[in-house]
Design a binder for these strands. Structure first.
Length: 490
RNA sequence: CGGGGCGUGGCGCAGCCCGGUAGCGCGCUUCGUUCGGGACGAAGAGGUCGUGGGUUCAAAUCCCGCCGCCCCGACCA
């Protein structure tokens, strides 16, 4: 087999890329670091979008769209923000090209822009410039807006889905009259992400707050959900920022409150990206390829008809189409692959690599016995079941698969979460097992930086459910109030 | 930008050390036999060997320059 998948244990990086490409999710583009999302990958993204979008609307948000170009001067308004993003911006300096005498294409010097434009790396600045025009009174608040967009960050090193120069995401930007309300929004959206990632992606996460050094550029506090990949590395799966009044001040966005006083608006922003697809791949896939959770799988069930002669073809296809109809009536996303250009064995493999949760094979034998062969992608179990009440069995089984995938991922996360008290144990666990490491921390950036420098592990978050526990920092020996989550991260 | 590696049909690679005019697997096309786990046979199509220069009767192969890509780090959703 030419396109065999590298076993996970051998080279995780290669395994991941093999799965992504084997499942036809994405390709590298001619431009370094950019990604071509193939129909398979995009179908997955569309399902994720649909669910998230519904959740946003259920929590009172509406969609809008802001421009891809941001005046350079906007970025400079918020000090921490510019610090964080200035070094990874694509800059537009000219508006047209011209051909030189020797036939080269260059930016026309005559078309140099008066002010450079940057391609948005995130939209806080353009949105807060806009909000400052929209908001005068407390009656104009809150504003609860989400945007589905692409953004560009000129990353030094990239990897399909996990870090690409351009990526698709949603970014929510909300404006509130009070600090309390903005804080509640921040936590609410963290909850939405948690629900989405756990209940739909079947990926367990730890909720927490970032330390100041890992905080979003311009935020007062960054809340996040952290997931654990199968190689023991952590991945940030979503963030929700409490921005305080930082952007309101930078863009002079004030409102008059009920007491006739002028006040700066309180802000949040939150985002999740196509990186989630990477997380999905890295958490559930095996050496046979992608494994998709039924709730997000573009195709939940594939039917592969098997026949040799024309008379067999007739009865087999008839049965297959009947089953397809029954499943569709139950809102199952089903695909009947009756192509004659590929053989059954080839199709079995193809849909396994693509992660389709369930496969039904039906041949003359089955038609005769009133049965089908049902194969689960996640466990690779096969069983022969009656055609009677098949739709009911399948909807139940899809739900079982969804639950069991989450259960296995959770068990993995728990088995790879270690509690340590000494620096030696800490290093030992990181080097031999990886995973999340719960360790005491004295709360200083100095020890955090030292640990990162020496072990490449960062504080993924201070968990929201952190228990008060008197301890001693592994490095400084200073007192620690509770454990934080360390890990090596993507 | 630092450290490694690699550029040879669509994809993955061998050939390079020791120069003689390009090969393998997969894929693709046609025909036949097949079809319950990536079928088999036969016949085909497809390559400026990244690029520029040098050495030589002769360069994928040796020498020098340049370009590009991948991996590991610094940066990051």
């Amino acid at each position: 087999m030419a396109d065999a998948i590298t076993p996970r244990a051998e080279d995780y990086s290669q395994w991941y890329l093999d799965v992504v490409r084997g499942a036809k999710l994405a390709d590298y583009s001619p431009v370094r670091g950019c990604m071509i999302i193939r129909p398979n990958g995009y179908a997955l993204w569309e399902n994720m979008q649909a669910v998230l979008d519904r959740m946003f609307k259920e929590t009172g948000h509406e969609n809008a769209y802001f421009p891809v170009f941001i005046p350079e001067s906007f970025l400079a308004r918020e000090a921490a923000h510019v610090e964080g993003f200035a070094k990874e911006c694509a800059v537009v300096t000219h508006s047209r090209l011209t051909v030189t005498e020797d036939g080269r294409l260059i930016p026309d010097p005559d078309s140099k822009l008066e002010e450079n434009l940057i391609v948005r790396p995130t939209s806080e600045t353009i949105i807060w410039d806009t909000y400052s025009k929209w908001i005068q009174s407390w009656r104009d608040l809150p504003i609860l807006i989400n945007q589905w967009a692409n953004v560009v960050r000129w990353e030094m090193r990239t990897r399909l889905f996990l870090r690409t120069m351009e990526f698709l995401w949603q970014e929510g930007h909300t404006a509130h009259a009070t600090e309390q309300e903005a804080l509640e929004e921040t936590i609410r959206m963290l909850g939405v992400y948690t629900a989405f990632v756990q209940d739909f992606m079947a990926v367990p996460v730890i909720q927490g707050i970032k330390t100041p050094s890992e905080r979003f550029a311009g935020a007062v506090d960054t809340y996040c959900i952290e997931a654990l990949m199968q190689d023991g590395k952590a991945l940030q799966a979503g963030t929700s920022h409490f921005l305080g009044q930082n952007f309101a001040k930078a863009f002079n966005c004030q409102f008059q409150n009920r007491n006739n006083e002028l006040e700066y608006v309180w802000a949040t922003s939150w985002g999740a990206s196509t990186r989630l697809i990477g997380a999905l791949v890295m958490v559930h896939s095996d050496d046979q390829g992608l494994v998709l959770p039924p709730r997000l799988a573009p195709t939940q069930v594939v039917i592969v008809p098997i026949y040799r002669k024309d008379d067999e073809k007739g009865v087999v296809l008839e049965a297959a189409e009947r089953i397809e109809k029954e499943l569709r009536a139950e809102s199952v996303r089903v695909k009947l692959d009756a192509r004659e250009s590929q053989r059954p064995g080839w199709k079995f493999n193809e849909y396994e690599v693509q992660g389709v949760p369930l496969r039904i094979a039906i041949g003359p034998r089955d038609v005769q016995n009133g049965q089908v062969e049902l194969a689960r992608r996640d466990t690779r179990e096969k069983q022969t079941v009656p055609q009677m009440a098949l739709a009911e069995r399948i909807t139940g089984l899809l739900e079982t698969i969804q639950q069991e995938m989450f259960g296995r991922a959770l068990a993995f996360q728990q088995a790879n979460t270690h509690t340590v008290n000494t620096y030696d144990d800490f290093k030992e666990v990181l080097d031999t097992k990886g995973g999340f490491v719960l360790a005491p921390w004295d709360g200083t950036a100095a020890t955090e930086a030292l640990i990162k420098e020496e072990t490449k592990a960062t504080i993924r978050c201070i968990p929201l459910d952190q228990e008060a526990e008197e301890g001693v920092d592994m490095v400084s020996g200073k007192p620690s109030a509770g454990r934080v989550v360390f890990g090596r991260a993507y």
